Simulated assay, not measured.
Amino acid sequence: MRNPFVQAATAAPSSATLRPIRVLLADDHVITLWGLRQLVESAHPRLAVAGTAGTCCEVLEHPNLAQTDVVLLDLGLRDASALQCVPRLVGECGVKVVVLTGELDPGLHREAVMLGARGVVLKSQPADHILEAIERVHRGEVWLDGSLMSLLLGSVPGLALKHAGPVDLQRQSIESLTAKERQVIQAVVAQRGAKSLVVADALGMSEHTLRNHLTVVYSKLGVRGKLDLYVFALEHGLAPGAAVPRTAAGPRVGPYTGLDRRAALDAAA
């Protein structure tokens, strides 16, 4: 039977494989990690295990990460949502990410892809799907369930991503924020100009965890740092009760534009 998965954005495979694809395995269950290692090693010499990790922190600090080609990432790591790892793995570390999950929520899968993952494999699917997903993603393809591909391409009735304008996409990015991410945004605004450690203390979390949350928030909202986030939050009502910066003409009511953005940035400094 033909594989029901859809691959897109194909790239021409190399005519010769000089070395195996190095895969870093991330799962917080020891037995699952053992099974994944056996599976990947069974595909030698095409694939090789670069290492294993049980938490987001271990993934990001793994000594072999720089030599890794693909990270096989479970979404349920014990220290944090693995979604927090994806933008840093893709953007900072330059590796490709295949998500392995038991979660059936298509919204969660979509979020992983929007953050940079290039493959989603369910744990209920055959083991050979995992191997094929790793190899295809390494070649530059996208490995997704057909229904998720439809969702991403906007062919699901009522979603209409094809015809969504900038305002619609912005609204969708805001709606994708979790309750914790909204708390982080509110704390950044309330503690404007404060060091990350101060904001982290106010939230009752470590500075490292705060950075992970901010990385995801920046990626979702398309902002580049705390100052941009501060302005975005005021413009879109993400910080209820925040003081409204004054311009030369007095307090501003409503969205910020032009010189009003400068006033907001000055207030955040």
Rank of each mutant, 00 (worst) to 15 (best):
R2P: 12
N3W: 13
A8C: 03
A12C: 00
P13V: 13
P13S: 04
S14P: 00
A16P: 01
L18E: 09
I21T: 09
V23R: 03
L25P: 04
V30H: 13
V30L: 15
L33V: 03
H44E: 05
L47V: 09
A53P: 06
T55A: 03
C57A: 15
E58Y: 06
P63E: 06
V71Y: 04
A82Q: 01
P87C: 06
V90S: 05
C93L: 08
K96Y: 03
L100I: 07
E103A: 14
L108M: 10
E111D: 06
M114Y: 00
L115N: 01
R118H: 01
L122K: 02
K123Y: 04
S124G: 11
I130T: 08
E135R: 11
L148N: 10
G154V: 04
L159R: 10
L161C: 07
G165N: 11
G165S: 04
P166Q: 09
I174R: 14
E175D: 12
S176M: 09
L177N: 08
L177P: 10
T178P: 06
A179W: 13
Q186D: 05
Q186I: 06
R192T: 10
V198T: 15
E207C: 10
R211D: 09
H213S: 07
L214A: 00
K220D: 03
L227R: 13
Y230N: 00
G237A: 08
A239F: 11
P240Q: 09
P245N: 12
G250Y: 07
P251E: 12
G254K: 08
P255V: 15
A263V: 15
A269K: 14
A269S: 15
